[in-house]
Simulated assay, not measured.
Amino acid sequence: MSDPADLSGPVSGWLSESGIEHALPLTLTRVGVGQSNLTYAVTDATGAPDRRWILRRPPLGHLLASAHDVAREARILTALQDSDVPVPRVFGVWTADGVPMVLMEFVDGLVLDREDVVAGVSEPTRHAVGLAIARALAPVHAVDLDKTGLVDLASHKPYAERQLKRWTTQWQHSKTRESADLDTLTARLASAIPEQRELTLVHGDFHMRNVIVSPADGSVASVLDWELCTLGDPLADVGTLLAYWPAADEAGQGLLSFSTLPGFPDREEMAAAYLDASGRDGSALAFWHALGLWKIAIIAEGVLRRVQDEPRNRAAAFAPTTEQIDSLIAKALRTLT
Rank of each mutant, 00 (worst) to 15 (best):
D281K: 14
G282I: 00
G282Y: 00
G282F: 00
G282S: 04
G282P: 01
G282K: 01
S283I: 12
S283D: 15
S283N: 15
A284S: 13
A284T: 08
L285T: 13
L285R: 11
L285I: 15
L285M: 14
L285S: 12
L285D: 13
A286G: 09
A286W: 03
A286C: 11
F287Q: 08
F287V: 03
F287K: 04
F287L: 05
W288A: 14
W288D: 15
W288G: 15
W288I: 14
W288T: 15
H289C: 11
H289S: 12
A290M: 04
A290L: 02
L291H: 12
L291Y: 07
G292Y: 01
G292V: 04
G292I: 04
L293H: 03
L293K: 07
L293C: 10
W294Y: 09
W294F: 13
W294T: 05
W294E: 04
K295G: 08
K295E: 09
K295R: 15
K295N: 11
I296L: 10
I296T: 09
I296R: 07
I296M: 08
I296C: 03
A297F: 00
A297N: 04
A297W: 00
I298H: 01
I298G: 00
I298V: 06
I298N: 04
I298C: 00
I299P: 01
I299W: 01
I299F: 01
I299G: 00
I299L: 07
A300I: 02
A300D: 12
A300Q: 11
E301K: 06
E301S: 12
E301L: 10
G302Y: 03
G302H: 08
G302N: 11
G302V: 06
V303D: 04
V303C: 07
V303Q: 08
L304H: 05
L304W: 08
L304C: 12
R305Q: 15
R305W: 14
R305Y: 13
R305V: 05
R306P: 09
R306N: 12
V307K: 07
V307D: 11
V307H: 11
V307M: 07
Q308C: 05
Q308H: 09
Q308I: 13
E310H: 14
P311D: 13
P311L: 12
N313E: 07
N313F: 03
R314S: 02
R314F: 01
R314W: 02
A315K: 08
A315C: 13
A315E: 09
A315R: 05
A315I: 10
A316Y: 02
A317H: 10
A317N: 14
A317D: 14
A317R: 04
F318W: 12
F318V: 14
F318L: 10
F318Q: 13
F318P: 07
F318I: 11
A319M: 10
A319D: 06
A319G: 12
A319N: 09
A319Y: 01
P320M: 06
P320H: 08
T321P: 02
T321G: 07
T321S: 12
T322F: 09
T322N: 11
E323H: 11
Q324W: 10
Q324C: 12
I325L: 08
I325M: 08
I325P: 04
D326V: 05
D326C: 07
D326I: 01
S327W: 09
S327G: 04
S327Y: 03
L328E: 04
L328Q: 06
L328A: 01
L328G: 08
L328K: 02
I329G: 00
I329K: 00
I329E: 01
I329V: 13
A330P: 05
A330H: 04
A330T: 11
A330L: 02
K331E: 02
